[in-house]
């Protein structure tokens, strides 16, 4: 059965890049896409995906806050953070909060797959 993925990033191009990588690999279903932390939280509650890829810098509610809220709702949630190169502090905070793994932009397909598979225990 395909693993259900929620993609969250305010940049549609990044969502499309990750989607292309997952679709090409096979075995994943993109259940929804969100552009803000608030959307991520709402979509998570509604869809309960197997995994979330979450950008950090987003308008309205950032990825760190969204991660916190998602983990409050579901402590077993699997969230892979997607971040630009300079966000080391935010990234460490996300890992401390319970993010499963992270991907640094710009990324290679292999790194995306390795983070997703590791997070899903594949």
């Amino acid at each position: 059965m395909a693993k259900r993925i929620l993609l969250v990033d305010d940049a549609p191009i990044i969502r499309l890049m990750i989607k292309d990588i997952l679709v090409e690999c096979g075995g994943y279903e993109i259940v929804a896409e969100g552009a803000t932390g608030k959307e991520a939280l709402d979509l998570y509650k509604q869809l309960k995906p197997d995994l979330v890829t979450m950008d950090i810098v987003m308008p309205e509610m950032d990825g760190i806050q969204a991660l916190e809220e998602i983990l409050k709702f579901d402590p077993k949630a699997k969230v892979v953070m997607v971040t630009a190169i300079d966000q080391r502090e935010s990234l460490m905070k996300a890992i401390r909060l319970g993010a499963t793994d992270y991907i640094v932009k710009p990324f290679e397909a292999d790194r995306v797959m390795s983070a997703v598979q590791k997070a899903l225990g594949e």
Binding site: A11, P12, I13, I85, D86, K105
Partner: peptide
């Protein structure tokens, strides 16, 4: 389209991040 706008947005974000990374 939205992807062209988003490409420039993301390039801006990633390049700016590269600069702040050097400063840090």
């Amino acid at each position: 389209d939205v992807y062209v706008t988003s490409t420039v947005q993301e390039l801006g974000n990633i390049l700016a991040s590269a600069v702040t990374n050097v400063f840090a």
